[in-house]
């Protein structure tokens, strides 16, 4: 990611006093930001060094030390365990994130610009639904999918993520679309365009950043989910997080394996952040505030 320093037209105060003050504040900010970089990076450091240690060194009292023998065994085992799950995770997370974005966009459009009586109630009910206690309802959810003849399939996992992602995607999209001036939509209406035509010609072309936000959010949460994945998939189509958990859950855990596994599992999401991070920020900046 490139460093974008947006130079704003800061008010120019006269006098060297003000300038010195400004410089001091700038340096203080930099120091503080660097301090927080440490806070965010330290745990990653532990993940990384532990993944290269062998069992005799993997315990919390050696957490900061570099490995005395660099060993790739953890990575090898972790890769063998997790790699079959990566493809499954992609098969769920990619379509899941895209479908969520499309549904969120349609809902957000209607709830922001093409409202029907009771739209606010629907919106509120969507948001309230986000708080459903997943742990309590896994049994009926599995039953529901079994009755639909979908149990154990990746499709059921994707469907669950799409459904439970509707509220957040709708929220983000609706807040974003609220920033598009009503006049644009009105003008299109006056020109005789229907709802879908307006959506296609006015809304969608302006939705790029918001799609980036929703797709990244959904991809991340689908990718990192464990609960739905372990209940809704079977042995032959477990996702990466279930495999990661399998490295962790043995009676005796060889800690270099789950640490390496955590890095392997996180790599695709990290890659997405690096590749799409700029769109993500741009999308949030454009969409977080309504005008």
């Amino acid at each position: 990611m490139t460093a974008v320093a947006v130079e704003k037209s800061a008010p120019q105060r006269t006098g060297s006093d003000a300038a010195r003050k400004k410089l001091a504040w700038s340096s203080a900010r930099f120091v503080l930001l660097m301090f927080f970089v440490l806070f965010f990076v330290l745990p990653i450091y532990v993940l990384l060094v532990t993944s290269f240690k062998n069992a005799s060194e993997t315990d919390p009292s050696h957490a900061w030390a570099l490995p005395s023998h660099w060993s790739f065994d953890g990575w090898r085992t972790a890769w063998d365990e997790i790699s079959p799950g990566l493809a499954n995770s992609f098969k769920v997370a990619v379509p899941g994130a895209l479908i969520s974005a499309v549904l969120g966009s349609l809902n957000g459009y209607v709830l922001a610009k093409w409202r029907f009586p009771g739209a606010d109630v629907v919106f509120t009910l969507f948001l309230f639904g986000m708080f459903i206690p997943y742990q309590a309802v896994m049994i009926p959810l599995v039953q529901l999918f079994t009755n639909l003849n979908l149990s154990g399939s990746l499709f059921s996992l994707m469907l669950a993520h799409v459904v439970y992602g509707i509220p957040i995607c709708t929220l983000i999209m609706r807040n974003y679309y609220a920033t598009i001036p009503d006049e644009l939509v009105e003008a299109s209406r006056v020109d005789g365009a229907g709802m879908l035509r307006t959506y296609w010609s006015i809304i969608v072309p302006n939705s790029g950043p918001a799609f980036a936000v929703v797709i990244i959010w959904q991809f991340t949460s689908i990718w990192n989910d464990f609960l739905f994945a372990v209940f809704l998939t079977g042995t032959n189509n477990w996702t990466a997080t279930v495999h990661l958990n399998n490295l962790l859950g043995a009676q005796t855990v060889n800690f270099n394996q789950p640490m390496a596994g955590a890095l392997i599992t996180s790599a695709p999401t990290l890659l997405i952040y690096v590749l799409l991070g700029r769109f993500f920020m741009r999308g949030m900046m454009a969409g977080a505030l309504k005008g």
Binding site: L150, S153, N237
Partner: peptide
């Protein structure tokens, strides 16, 4: 993709 990933029960 979702069509491919849907498997028979």
């Amino acid at each position: 993709l979702s069509a491919c990933s849907s498997s028979k029960s």
